[in-house]
C-alpha cells in the first residue's frame, strides 16, 4: 500500500472536567488506505466514538485533542486545520453516518431537502441541481420512487429508509472517507444486512474508504478488511479480519470472540468478560485489562505493555507476545476473585 488516505498518529482526546481528566482516547494510532474498510471494535466507553468525532474535530467541550496528536488526511493535519477549512472537509471529503436514523434527521424538513442541503453547503450549483442530485443519490441508495420519497418528512419513512437517507447525505459529495458510527445498531437484523450490503456496494462503486465503528463483530466480519480493537482508550490489537477471527492474540479480543453467541454449540448461557471498563479518569497502571484478564501475572501490573508485533500485519498490546507460556495456566480474573458482580 502506498501513502494511506488517513493516518491517525498518537491521538489523545482528553476531557477536562473539574480536577479530573478523562482520557477517553489515549494514544491511538491507525491508518486507512484508499478504498479500504477499517473496523474499530470495542465495548461502550472504550473510546471508539470519541476517536471518530476527533477525526472530524467534533469533540465538544470540555473534550480536547491534546497536542502531539496528528490526524493526517490528504496531506493536511486535521488537528491544526482552521475551522473554515475543517468545515470544508466535513461532508465533502470526510462524512459521517450516525447511529440513530430516528434522530439524525431534522423533523421539520423533507428528506430531499436535507440531502440537497449537503450539496448546497459544498457545491455552488443551483437549488434545482442540488435537488436533482439528491433524488439521484436517494435512488442509488435503493429508495423506491425517490422523487416522491424526497418530498416526505422523516417521520413518514421507516427506520431502514431513514438510514438510507443518511447514507445518501453522507455520500452525495463523493467523500474519500465515510465514518460509520454503529450504522446498523438501531435497525432490525434483516434491515441491518441490507444496509451493510448497500454500504459495501456503494463503496465499490465510488471507491470510498470506510471507518466502521461498531461493537458488533458480525458487522466487522461482513464489511471490514482490517480491524482495530480498542480498550480503555487504546488500541489493544490490530490485524487483518481473517487473522483476528482465526487467531486473536490479545485476551480482550479473545474474550470478545467468546462472547459471541455460537450457533454450532448449543449453550444455555452466553460467555461474558467479567467486570466492566474502568473509569476513564482512572485507568489502571500497567496493563489496563489486567483486572479482567484470566492470564495476568506480575509483569502486567508493573509494566504497561507496548504494541508488540505478532506478524507484519498483526500487533497486540499484551505481554503474552513475549512470554507466551503464561497462556497455559488461566486463572479466574481478579475482578471475580474480589467478588465484583459481573
Amino acid at each position: 500500500m502506498t501513502e494511506p488516505l488517513l493516518s491517525v498518529e498518537n491521538l489523545r482526546t482528553w476531557f477536562h472536567t473539574g480536577d479530573a481528566v478523562a482520557k477517553a482516547v489515549d494514544g491511538v494510532s491507525f491508518s486507512i488506505g484508499s478504498g479500504e474498510t477499517l473496523g474499530i471494535v470495542g465495548e461502550s466507553g472504550c473510546g471508539k466514538s470519541v476517536t471518530a468525532l476527533s477525526i472530524l474535530r467534533l469533540v465538544q467541550q470540555p473534550g480536547r485533542i491534546e497536542s502531539g496528536s496528528r490526524i493526517m488526511f490528504e496531506g493536511k493535519d486535521l488537528v491544526t486545520l482552521d475551522d473554515a477549512a475543517m468545515r470544508d472537509i466535513r461532508g465533502n471529503r470526510i462524512s459521517m453516518i450516525f447511529q440513530e436514523p430516528m434522530s439524525a434527521l431534522n423533523p421539520v424538513f423533507t428528506v430531499g431537502d436535507q440531502v440537497a442541503e449537503v450539496a448546497r453547503i459544498h457545491g455552488h450549483g443551483s437549488r434545482r441541481d442540488a435537488w436533482n442530485r439528491a433524488v439521484e443519490m436517494l435512488s442509488l441508495t435503493g429508495i423506491p420512487a425517490p422523487e416522491e420519497r424526497a418530498k416526505e418528512y422523516p417521520h413518514q419513512l421507516s427506520g431502514g429508509m431513514r438510514q438510507r437517507v443518511l447514507i445518501a447525505m453522507a455520500l452525495i459529495m463523493n467523500p474519500a472517507l465515510v465514518i460509520a458510527d454503529e450504522p446498523t445498531t438501531a435497525l432490525d437484523v434483516t434491515i441491518q444486512a441490507q444496509i451493510l450490503e448497500l454500504l459495501v456496494d456503494l463503496q465499490k462503486r465510488f471507491g470510498t474508504s470506510i471507518l466502521m465503528i461498531t461493537h458488533d463483530l458480525g458487522v466487522i466480519a461482513e464489511t471490514a478488511s482490517r480491524v482495530v480493537v480498542m480498550y480503555c482508550g487504546e488500541v489493544v490489537e490490530e490485524a487483518e479480519v481473517d487473522t483476528l477471527f482465526a487467531a486473536a492474540h490479545h485476551p480482550y479480543t479473545e474474550g470478545l470472540m467468546h462472547a459471541m453467541p455460537q450457533l454450532s454449540e448449543p449453550r444455555a448461557r452466553l460467555n461474558v468478560i467479567p467486570g466492566s471498563v474502568p473509569a476513564p479518569t482512572d485507568w489502571p497502571s500497567g496493563c489496563r485489562f489486567r483486572d479482567r484478564c484470566p492470564y495476568s501475572w506480575e509483569r502486567c501490573e508493573r509494566e504497561h505493555p507496548p504494541l508488540y508485533e505478532i506478524s507484519p500485519t498483526h500487533t497486540s498490546r499484551c505481554h503474552l507476545a513475549v512470554e507466551p507460556e503464561h497462556r497455559a495456566n488461566p486463572h479466574p480474573p481478579l475482578v471475580e476473585q474480589l467478588g465484583v458482580s459481573v
Partner: peptide
C-alpha cells in the same frame, strides 16, 4: 440533538 450533530458533521456552519 443528533440531527444537529449530523449537520455539523456534514459541514454546516454555526449560522446555518
Amino acid at each position: 440533538q443528533d440531527f444537529v450533530a449530523s449537520a455539523r458533521a456534514l459541514g454546516a456552519g454555526r449560522a446555518r
